[in-house]
């Protein structure tokens, strides 16, 4: 009887469902774990007073934590660094990623070249991030940065200006890292645009460039935003490759200035991920900073989850919009 039961498959299905349940439990458990360890960090337990004033104090503590400098135990430089590096990355990666996706979906003919490029895209997505860091250090910092110094900052040599790790190299490395994310997500969006629209545009005597500029890209803009959000979410949590190219555990000054060009591209920055790594494991007083690290982790995860959620929502709306796909004959 038992044999028959197994042959019919019911227990196997249940085991597979168990795998789903376990995966979901792991996600939920991890989230709950982080929330449990981080939400209570700033609750003033040992102070007298009613809960209203405690709540006020609690919120104030959070605010101090989020806006304070590293010397005050806050993570503002890390937040700012994270935001700056991903924004700059977004500026760098979007045009290239979108154009590459357009090539893959609109221009390339099915054949060995297209297959090769697809293999390259998936490979690039699978290259260990630390290898991008190694490339970034050697190629961007030493080679590119060194060349820039030689050309434009001769006077201040041998003190390097760009030939040393800094914000711009961090963003460039991240742009390399997230390029496949942008390409894949944008291409998905392009695939969702009805072929009918393109044909209609061609029928009016538009050139291919005009079809893409005036119809395809505007229609794909939600997909591009989705792609960008996924890329930012991926980049915001990255630490390993950035150790080499300009993310450090603490910075003497923020990479912003009040004078033109406002943004110090060559300055080193710190990021939330780095902050977690450093104060969680590296620092000698790891035991004392542990609760604060959980708070930082919460901030980082909130940022990433919000981006992912927004991307998911956008993608869903995009799918709905083109729910009834149609292709000519």
């Amino acid at each position: 009887m038992l044999q028959n039961w197994f042959r019919q498959g019911t227990p196997w299905i249940w085991l597979n469902a168990g795998a789903v349940a376990l995966s979901l439990l792991l996600v939920a458990g991890l989230l709950a774990f982080i929330l449990m360890h981080s939400l209570g960090v700033f609750w003033p337990t040992d102070l007298p007073g009613h809960s209203g004033s405690k709540l006020w104090l609690y919120l104030q503590n959070w605010w101090l934590f989020l806006s304070g400098s590293s010397a005050e135990g806050g993570i503002f430089p890390a937040i700012l660094g994270t935001v700056l590096m991903v924004l700059l990355m977004a500026v760098l990666v979007t045009p290239l990623g979108v154009l590459a996706a357009v090539y893959l979906h609109e221009y390339a003919k099915d054949g060995p070249v297209l297959r090769l490029i697809r293999i390259a895209v998936h490979n690039l997505a699978g290259v260990p991030s630390i290898v991008f860091g190694v490339f970034g250090l050697g190629f961007f910092v030493y080679f590119l940065g060194g060349s820039i110094d030689n050309l434009f900052y001769r006077d201040s040599l041998p003190t390097p200006t760009f030939g040393t790790p800094g914000l711009i190299w961090v963003s460039l490395t991240l742009a390399l890292l997230t390029l496949p994310v942008v390409i894949v997500a944008t291409e998905q969006g392009l695939a969702g645009i009805p072929k009918n629209l393109r044909l209609g545009c061609f029928a009016l005597g538009a050139t291919k460039a005009e079809v893409i500029w005036k119809i395809v890209l505007p229609q794909a803009s939600p997909a591009m935003v989705t792609a960008l959000m996924l890329a930012i979410a991926r980049a915001a949590g990255e630490v390993a490759p950035l150790i080499f190219v300009g993310v450090v555990k603490s910075v003497p000054a923020l990479p912003l200035s009040s004078e033109f060009p406002y943004l110090q591209l060559q300055q080193k920055i710190t990021s939330l991920g780095m902050h977690i790594y450093d104060s969680g494991i590296q620092s000698p007083a790891a035991q004392d900073t542990e609760p604060l690290v959980f708070a930082s982790a919460l901030v980082l995860i909130t940022l990433i989850f919000m981006l992912n959620l927004a991307a998911y929502r956008l993608r869903k709306r995009l799918n709905l919009r083109y729910g009834n796909r149609s292709v000519v004959e």
Binding site: L197, G200, Q219
Partner: peptide, 18 residues
């Protein structure tokens, strides 16, 4: 492109641009 301007086409399913 110029040829298609001179010879227009309308398909079975209406495809207005959004």
């Amino acid at each position: 492109a110029e040829l298609r301007r001179r010879v227009g086409i309308v398909f079975q399913k209406p495809n207005p641009f959004p």
